[in-house]
Simulated scan of single mutants.
Amino acid sequence: MTKLVQDAVQHQPTRLNRGMSDNDTLPVPQLGKALRILRMKQLVERTMLSRATLYVLMATDPTFPRKVKLTARAIGYVESEVDAWIAARAQ
């Protein structure tokens, strides 16, 4: 690419869809610390609930943290979302 084209591409805002104006850009999340992923065993220890109860909550509670697919056979949960869910249930 030429220098002019490279500069133009770098200064273009990222748009979500065609209906957005040129001033609308994607929000960039600011992460204060690294994300930590909890596996099922850690989730059981953190919540003090059984695996069976957690699976029921995953299926029925819309506020339960979403799972994150790590590999084809492994899932995890974002620690901050789990902590927020526990705090909300405690109130």
Rank of each mutant, 00 (worst) to 15 (best):
L54N: 04
W85F: 01
R46D: 02
V28C: 08
T14I: 15
E81V: 01
Q10N: 15
V56Q: 14
A52W: 04
V5P: 00
P13D: 05
A84C: 02
E79L: 03
Q91F: 02
V9K: 12
V82C: 04
R46C: 05
V44A: 04
G19N: 14
P29F: 11
V56W: 02
T71D: 12
L43F: 11
M40E: 08
R18G: 07
V44D: 01
W85V: 01
R51H: 03
W85C: 00
M40L: 15
P62S: 11
K33P: 02
W85S: 00
L31D: 05
F64I: 03
T60I: 05
M58Q: 15
T14V: 15
R46L: 11
I86R: 00
P65D: 06
T63S: 12
V28N: 07
V78W: 01
R73H: 13
K3P: 00
G19Q: 12
V56F: 07
D61G: 04
A74E: 15
P27Q: 09
D7P: 00
D22H: 08
T14D: 10
M48S: 14
Q42Y: 05
A87T: 01
K69Y: 02
A88V: 00
T60H: 07
D24Q: 15
K69I: 09
V44G: 02
T71V: 10
K33Q: 12
W85R: 01
R89W: 00
E45P: 02
L38M: 12
P13V: 10
R36K: 14
T2M: 06
T71C: 10
A52K: 09
P65M: 03
L57F: 09
T14W: 14
T53M: 12
K3H: 10
G76W: 06
Q30L: 15
A74W: 06
G76D: 10
V78P: 01
G19V: 02
L38Q: 03
D22L: 13
I75L: 14
L54H: 05
Q10P: 01
A59Y: 03
Q12E: 10
T63F: 03
A84N: 10
K41H: 10
P62H: 03
D7V: 04
R36T: 13
I37K: 08
W85K: 00
P62I: 11
D22G: 05
V9S: 07
Y55R: 06
V56M: 12
L38F: 11
Q12K: 07
L31Y: 12
E45T: 12
L31W: 04
I75T: 14
V9M: 10
R18K: 09
D83I: 01
L54D: 06
T2P: 04
S50E: 07
E45A: 15
A90C: 04
D61N: 06
L49K: 10
P27C: 08
E81D: 15
L57Y: 14
A90H: 10
M40H: 01
S50D: 08
Q42I: 05
V44C: 08
D22T: 09
V68K: 14
M48A: 10
F64Y: 07
K3M: 06
P65E: 05
Q12C: 13
M20R: 10
L16N: 09
V56T: 14
R46Y: 01
K3Q: 11
P62E: 13
